[in-house]
Nucleic acid binder design. Structure first.
Lengths: 197, 197
DNA sequence: GTAATATAGGACCAATTAGTCCAATTTACA
DNA sequence: TGTAAATTGGACTAATTGGTCCTATATTAC
């Protein structure tokens, strides 16, 4: 290996950037914001990350990877698949207390901000959503096998339903809903799965 | 009345601006975009609407008023309250074919874009959501009286649930979901209301 | 020591932004 | 005809944007 080694942690800096994009959105996060938060100079930034847009795509992928692995572990470690599903919904209520603000979900925020004008980003968002849907699908099938959810409705429809409800809950958090509201709605949604014929 | 009368239609121009803000968001809609779409000069713009931000607040209020009155009429004219609820959900599927793009809901888009950094806007969004929730609440109570929805769950929780599901469906549309997916999810959500114990 | 690379910092750039101001013109009413 | 108001269009600002380039310095391996 030749030359002076990189002093800052590239992954750490990307993580910081991701948090910023998550909290403020792409356009509202200026280069100055990024440099200040990442603690590096403009020179290092462009040498390492090529452009703001490239960095954002990396952040989006990183967010998706973390989300997917967190959910997968959650499902694997949950007492039952049904408990995983319940936790996934009810846990959104904690977002109302997030000290970093009501940030929602980076993928859904991105879909809202500019998946309409950047097909690259749009594909990335769709892939991310599909990945989370697949985990829910796995959980639903297992819960149906356990008898916790009726098998009268196709598992893929229930997985779509779960993704939709989580999206909706996250949206409501951003729109100012109270913790109690989110809990009530989440718990009711869980009941709908349990009590459907 | 003194002086030269206004040549362009103020409400019409505001409507055009609303459509732009709805499709592109606040920041992504530049003044040039607005002037071109509204068909007026910069001078007329500032004389009539004070600022981009002021105009946006007016558009948000107008959107809310139209949404509320559309929903109210929909409920009043529906064969049954339950049919109104079903239509409100399933109709979101048509957003996938909107020639103006997958715009979502201006209020939710706004919540996502910057209700975190503008308390004025945040209050406006919350009021708008509350207004739609109230209409759903009315519909739910009526449907419970009709026996179309069980009275075992509090009507206000069901109203929150409906707002959440609609938000989620609109989010999914923006994120690229297919028409069929939206219909399936919407119809399943309706069934959850009908078949809950 | 030298080559190779990373660093910080600043000059610079072209474009865009929202917004102000002014001058010239048009349209109404009294 | 005169006054009040709306019109357009362009000049102009101050700020910000993402991005490039250059210089000087620091740090490593060979």
């Amino acid at each position: 290996m030749l030359g002076r080694p990189r002093k800052f942690d590239e992954n750490g800096a990307r993580e910081v950037a991701m948090q910023l994009f998550w909290a403020k959105g792409y356009e509202a996060t200026s280069l100055s914001n990024l440099l200040a938060a990442m603690g590096i100079s403009k020179s290092s930034f462009y040498q390492t990350f090529e452009s703001k847009h490239t960095l954002f795509e990396q952040c989006l992928n990183q967010y998706r990877d973390i989300l997917v692995s967190t959910m997968s572990e959650g499902l694997a470690n949950a007492p039952t698949p049904m408990m995983f599903i319940k936790h996934a919904l009810v846990d959104v209520a904690n977002d109302t207390n997030d000290p970093l603000g009501r940030r929602g979900c980076l993928m859904m925020n991105t879909a809202s901000e500019f998946s309409q004008r950047d097909s690259n980003i749009a594909r990335c968002v769709e892939a991310g959503i599909q990945a989370t849907k697949d985990i829910f699908l796995q959980a639903v099938k297992a819960a149906q096998a356990d008898g916790d959810i009726s098998s009268n409705t196709r598992a893929d429809i229930l997985a779509d339903y779960l993704v939709t409800v989580v999206s909706g809950l996250k949206s409501q958090v951003k729109a100012g809903a109270s913790r109690k509201q989110i809990i009530n709605t989440a718990e009711f949604s869980v009941r709908t799965l349990q009590e459907m014929a």
